[in-house]
């Protein structure tokens, strides 16, 4: 079987979608900004697919993930939950995952979302970070 070359994934931030900076080559994943795209499934679908495939490919390695979000709507929240479930499953198959959930000082809404999502995680090293 021929190995598929690893390629990074970068999508600049738009008015209502976050910056996607998936550095698969260095095992570092960043998502920054606001997320309420017109079609959340179309925006997040390819991200989930790439992330899932990458987690399968790097079993046993370390993966660092950082979410730095200011706002997301409920359709995007669903996609973020799916991403978090992919990370939790990756740990079960031997990948060491760290998730940094960054929120602005005084942003209680984003802090609470971090706490909500952390309840879904048993194996991922979760860090709630005020910035």
């Amino acid at each position: 079987m021929r190995e598929v070359p690893v390629e990074n994934m970068f999508i600049p931030a738009m008015e209502r979608s976050p910056e996607v900076d998936f550095r698969f080559l260095g095992n570092r994943i960043f998502l920054r900004g606001e997320a309420y795209p017109e079609d959340a499934a179309a925006f997040f679908g390819p991200l989930l697919k790439r992330l899932s495939a990458h987690c399968d490919a790097i079993r046993g390695q370390e993966l660092q993930v950082e979410f730095r979000l200011d706002y997301f709507n409920t359709s995007s929240a669903k996609a973020l939950m799916n991403m978090i479930q992919i990370l939790e499953n990756a740990v079960r198959t031997g990948t060491q995952v760290t998730l940094r959930w960054c929120f602005q000082k005084d942003d209680e809404v984003m802090r609470e979302f971090g706490e909500d999502f952390s309840m879904e995680l048993q194996h991922v090293d979760f860090q709630l970070v005020e910035i």
Binding site: T74, S75, K78, M81, D116, E120
Partner: peptide, 26 residues
């Protein structure tokens, strides 16, 4: 409300919902 939100976000949306069916709870 918070518990209901977490339950809905973990599970699949209502089949007749175009969104995540979370909007009203949010």
């Amino acid at each position: 409300i918070k518990a209901f939100y977490l339950d809905r976000i973990r599970n699949e949306p209502d089949p007749d919902s175009l969104g995540a069916s979370l909007g009203l709870i949010e």
